[in-house]
Computed example of a mutant assay.
Amino acid sequence: MIRVVLADDEPVVRFGVKAVLATAGDIEVVAEAENGSAAIDLVARHRPDVAVLDIRMPVFDGLDAAKVIRECHPGTKTLVLTTFADDAYISRALGEGAAGFVLKTGDPQEIISGVRAVANGGAFLSPMVAKRVVDQMSRTHPRPLATQRIEVLTAREREVLGLVGAGLANAEIAARLHVVEGTIKVYVSTIFRQLGVRNRVQAAIIAHESGIIPEN
Rank of each mutant, 00 (worst) to 15 (best):
V13L: 08
I40A: 12
G95A: 09
V180E: 15
S113Q: 11
L79Y: 10
G36R: 00
I213N: 08
F15M: 13
R200P: 02
L81Q: 07
D87T: 14
V4S: 04
G97Y: 00
A203T: 08
A66I: 07
E172I: 05
V29W: 10
L195V: 14
A119T: 07
A66V: 02
A155C: 00
D86Y: 11
L125T: 09
Y89P: 01
G95V: 09
G182I: 14
L79G: 09
V186T: 15
S37N: 03
P58S: 08
A38W: 00
G106T: 12
Q148S: 13
T76W: 04
A33Y: 07
F84M: 03
E159Q: 12
T105M: 07
L177I: 15
E32S: 11
A204R: 08
M57W: 06
G121Y: 04
L63K: 13
E151P: 00
V43P: 10
L103V: 09
L21W: 06
P108I: 10
K104A: 06
H178Y: 05
V59G: 00
S126C: 14
D87E: 15
G211L: 09
I69M: 00
L145R: 15
V5E: 02
Q202E: 15
M1Q: 06
I150M: 09
P48G: 09
H208M: 03
L63Y: 12
P48S: 06
M128H: 13
L168V: 00
S138T: 14
Y187S: 06
I27K: 06
V179Y: 04
I90Q: 10
I2C: 09
A24T: 04
V30N: 01
R200M: 10
V20N: 04
E157T: 09
T190Q: 15
E209H: 07
V5Q: 06
G167N: 01
V197N: 07
T147L: 15
R70W: 10
V118I: 09
E110N: 15
V134A: 11
G121S: 13
V129M: 02
G165H: 13
R14Y: 02
V201H: 10
A155T: 11
A93T: 06
G165Y: 12
V43D: 01
L145W: 13
T190P: 00
S91G: 12
S126G: 14
D8P: 05
R193K: 14
R158A: 11
L42G: 11
R139K: 11
V102S: 06
E28S: 08
L94N: 06
L94C: 08
L161Q: 08
T190C: 10
I184K: 11
E159R: 14
V102Y: 08
P48L: 02
G162A: 01
E209R: 09
V197R: 02
G196C: 02
S210G: 15
P214K: 11
D8W: 13
G36C: 11
V160Y: 04
G95C: 02
A22V: 00
M128W: 06
P74C: 13
L21S: 05
K67I: 00
V17A: 11
M1L: 13
Q109V: 07
F192H: 14
K77Y: 02
G16F: 07
Y89T: 05
G75P: 12
T147F: 02
R45F: 03
P108C: 09
R92C: 05
A130N: 00
E157C: 12
A44F: 00
I27Q: 00
N216R: 14
L94E: 03
